[in-house]
Amino acid sequence: MLSQGMASRGDIIEGRAREALIVLGCPEVPVQQALALYAADRLNDDGYSLSIAGNPAVLNLLRISDPKRMYIRELVELERCIDELSKEVRQADLILAFIHNDAGISFASTIRFLFPGRLVVLVFGREAEARAEELEISCELIMDPAVHNPGKLRRKLDEVMGWQKQ
């Protein structure tokens, strides 16, 4: 088992640890927080150097949920994250983006434009199907109209990411 936040030798790319970025939307749909912490735990175990981007509200929820930082590592304000991706000063090998509203489509499309690597998009919430139809980008799409129960999305995420059942 890996130490938290440490990369194994197999997780080093050209002298640096693989980097994963989770991009969160507005925190008003409960499944997002659960899945973000779940994905953070899995990515940490996979040896990624992890960052999570979001607006101040969502970052504050994470800080309060995880005071000992068992799951979260670097937290970055969303506008700063987009600025760093634009300037190519932020590197990522994998991005997980969470979408449940129209603004999420705009942010995911922006990330797709700026980031050529592996992009996994989770679309959730009551209007998930309509949002997924609006998303015209190349990505690995996971969709379920979940609001309170993250079970189906978690199972689909496990499949896409190749994570074994825990």
């Binding site: 506008e79 987009i82 991706l85 634009s86 705009s106 499309s109 922006t110 434009f113 700026l114 015209e136």
Partner: peptide, 16 residues
């Protein structure tokens, strides 16, 4: 413009 275009010290967000 494309996403990431810098205007008024903000990066443009949106569907290109």
């Amino acid at each position: 413009v494309d996403p990431g275009f810098l205007l008024f010290e903000k990066r443009m967000i949106g569907v290109p």
